[in-house]
Amino acid sequence: MFNILAIAQSGRLQYEAILLAASLRAHDPAFKGRLFLATPNPGPLWDHDPRITDAATLSLLADLGAELLPFDSRHFGSSYPYGNKIEAITHLPEEPFLFLDTDTLVTGPLSALPFDFARPSASMKREGTWPQPDLYGPGYTDIWKSLYDRFGLDFAASLDLSQPDEYWQRYLYFNAGWFFHESPRRFGKTFLRFASEIAAHPGAALACQSLDPWLDQIALPLVIHALGGGRPPASLGALDTTHSCHWRLMPLLYARESDDVVAKLEALAHRPEIAAVLRGYPPFKRMIYQQKGAEVRALFDRANLPRKEQAMRNTIKRAGLWTR
């Protein structure tokens, strides 16, 4: 048994959390763990109140079996909201956990997957977004090695030697959309330490590299390597394929995901109790209920999608259909 953690707060994430919770209950009815939605409390690091206050949303999330997990932001807050996932982990019960980004649909039984929680891993559904080496250096090897050396980690053991030198896939790099481990306490403390130290003192090798929004994805491979993990085994291939979909933004879901994912999304979204809440969020109203998502879908051939996500975004924007 394991628990699931996602982040929820006022605005877009509260509506995404409804779809996540509903899809978990619909497509993994045998799941015996707890679904925690970590919600940051207001405080000096927030320039607004991040809590979910809408009564209809809170009632629906409770009906779907989600448990709110309030926590105080002591390191990130408004300046880096991606840091929520880093700070929230240690507030979980000390049991195996799977973190999911809130913009995830569960499309198959996660509880049936053979997780080895003693060997942490994370999503490989990523592009080579970081680092972006300067023409005159340092390169991928020098940048990543500087981080492994800083934390006393074995850089050589992290490499995929089937990939060429100075090619981004040679280096351990994940999407932070899902990751797991047996100990929230150890994982969360390690994640917070590594991320905080990198943010405070990037070092010479990172001097020309952007840390925002990439800080979580810079620290994550170091955490996983430090705790004895690595790239996910083939046995977890159902994540990001048949059993979960990290859809990112609704126009991108309609642009690139399978007919099965779209059908499951719309079946959930049109349940009366869910539609009553989601229609109140303009991007979802436009994409799902006003059927603009179908117009986005007609712009693309799923068998021949653009190689880069940015190209998809540009096509959707030119058609006047982009929404966040």
Rank of each mutant, 00 (worst) to 15 (best):
Y171F: 15
L215G: 05
K125T: 11
F31E: 02
G228W: 05
S235R: 06
P40M: 12
L252Y: 08
I218W: 05
D154P: 09
A195S: 15
D142H: 12
P306Y: 08
L265Q: 00
F179Y: 15
G177F: 13
E182K: 14
I274L: 06
Y167C: 06
A38W: 09
H225I: 09
L147Y: 11
K285H: 13
P202K: 07
A275L: 01
L305S: 07
P283V: 07
A276R: 15
L20I: 12
E67R: 09
A26T: 15
D149N: 09
L252G: 06
S79E: 14
A62Y: 01
N84K: 11
D149A: 15
P164R: 03
P233R: 06
A38E: 10
L45M: 10
A303C: 02
I143E: 10
Q290S: 10
L13Y: 11
A319E: 08
S158I: 12
Q310C: 01
L61E: 08
V223Y: 10
R248C: 01
A26C: 12
H181A: 15
F2H: 12
D240Y: 11
S235W: 05
D28G: 07
R286W: 00
G128R: 11
A276V: 02
L321A: 06
D49A: 04
G188R: 10
L113S: 04
A226C: 13
E257V: 05
A294L: 14
Y281K: 00
H246L: 15
D149Y: 03
A234F: 05
H246E: 13
A255P: 08
L37Q: 06
G320A: 05
H243T: 13
L68D: 00
W46K: 07
F174R: 13
F180N: 02
L20Y: 03
K85C: 04
P251W: 06
V106I: 15
T57P: 00
T129E: 14
E127P: 00
F300V: 07
Q209R: 09
T190D: 02
L60W: 04
L69T: 08
P221Y: 09
S146R: 00
R256I: 12
Q217W: 08
R297D: 08
Y140H: 15
A26I: 04
A319G: 05
A156L: 05
L5G: 05
A56D: 13
Y136E: 10
R34S: 14
R74Y: 04
N304M: 06
L253A: 14
G77N: 01
G33L: 09
S121D: 09
P50A: 07
N314K: 14
A298E: 13
L305K: 02
G11Y: 07
E197F: 06
L58Y: 02
F179I: 06
G108Y: 12
T39P: 00
T90S: 13
T102R: 01
G108K: 02
V223C: 15
Y80S: 05
L252N: 07
P93E: 06
R126P: 00
S78N: 01
F284G: 00
V223H: 04
S210T: 14
F117P: 07
E87L: 13
K189V: 03
D63P: 00
P202Q: 11
R185N: 04
H246Y: 11
L37P: 07
L68S: 07
A298L: 08
A207D: 08
T53G: 03
E166C: 11
T107W: 09
R318K: 14
H225F: 12
V223R: 11
